[in-house]
Nucleic acid binder design. Structure first.
Length: 305
DNA sequence: AGCGAGCCCTGCGCGC
DNA sequence: TGCGCGCAGGGCTCGC
């Protein structure tokens, strides 16, 4: 279940391999992985073949590979969804090379001036992820569009996504202001990618536990001090996961070289219901929330006025 | 504006 | 053994 840390591991792994590489071939094995590609822009494969990748960028959970050599700025947008993987493999069109990786939906043949030819496999078991060719549009604040990309541009389908809390251009003040004025609960706000991006169900629960905030605390009554603490804990949780290479539960998440990121042994509350709270020792609770689960400690995390 | 419901999907683990 | 069901959930649309 890739969240910001896992996606960043993928971006960082892709960056040296794909920057400067030319796309020589595109094979789409399952068009459902192109759900977010607007076909009125043109055929996905035809738009990509012959283009050169300039960089590997990320904002929140969205990845994009900006393309050079074009009249209009565009990018290959990648979202991993629940189970997406980007795998770098040796060149060669043999069916075995594809079959070795399960659930390969799209395969790109790339040629790098220094490293030669290789293949990029987009594998995705549950097909919640996608690839798309999209136009780049200016960022409203004029700051770089995302991590790994200096230009003040962002793919159109990512433009509504807020900056993530590790982005130097993320505005703490604007985030706090939004919390103070919204009529919603804090976990909903954390999962709302238009307020703050990159945080999913796992790290939301972890950060809320670390900050001792109840998932249903109204954002308007959270208070400035606790909001600051929560944002700091979000950054800590994300940075810690990033340092450890991302979280994985069932090897769905695999980094660009195919090895599992693994951080789940470090989780304090997510998936730990029934076990003792690492802080107070009382039993951790799991409740249904927003069509998913919230894990928390009823003693450490109370709704406060 | 906010939120619930539903949809997109596959595979795993469970109970019977 | 094998079937059916619940569950996992990011992002989006629809309707109240």
């Amino acid at each position: 279940m890739p969240e910001l840390p896992e996606v960043e591991v993928v971006r960082a792994g892709l960056e040296p391999a794909v920057s400067g590489a030319t796309i020589n071939s595109v094979e789409v094995f399952d068009t459902r992985s192109l759900r977010r590609h607007d076909s009125s822009r043109g055929d996905f494969a035809r738009l990509l073949i012959g283009r050169r990748i300039a960089a590997a960028a990320r904002r929140g959970k969205f990845l994009w590979l900006p393309l050079a050599d074009a009249a209009a700025a565009s990018a290959l947008v990648i979202h991993l969804g629940m189970s997406g993987q980007v795998l770098l493999r040796e060149a060669g069109a043999s069916p075995d090379a594809v079959a070795r990786d399960r659930h390969v939906r799209i395969r790109l043949g790339l040629d790098h001036p220094d490293h030669g030819e290789f293949a990029l496999h987009f594998a995705d078991q549950r097909i919640f992820g996608s690839m798309a060719l999209d136009a780049l549009v200016p960022t409203p604040d004029g700051a770089p569009g995302g991590h790994g990309f200096d230009a003040p541009l962002v793919p159109g389908q990512v433009a509504h996504i807020a900056r993530d809390p590790l982005d130097p251009a993320f505005s703490d003040a604007a985030f706090f202001d939004a919390l103070a004025h919204k009529k919603t609960e804090i976990k909903r706000a954390l999962l709302d990618q238009t307020l703050i991006s990159g945080v999913g169900n796992i790290y939301a629960d972890e950060a809320l536990w670390a900050a001792r905030v109840h998932y249903a605390q109204p954002t308007a009554t959270l208070g400035a001090g606790r909001a600051r603490t929560l944002l700091a804990e979000i950054r800590l949780v994300l940075a810690k996961a990033l340092a450890e290479g991302g979280t994985s539960f069932d090897a769905q998440y695999v980094n660009v070289n195919g090895t599992s990121g693994y951080f789940s042994h470090s989780l304090n509350v997510y998936g730990q219901s029934g076990k003792p709270c690492p802080r107070c020792g009382r039993t951790l609770t799991r409740v249904a929330f927003m069509n998913r689960s919230s894990h928390f400690c009823t003693h450490c995390q109370k709704i406060r006025g």
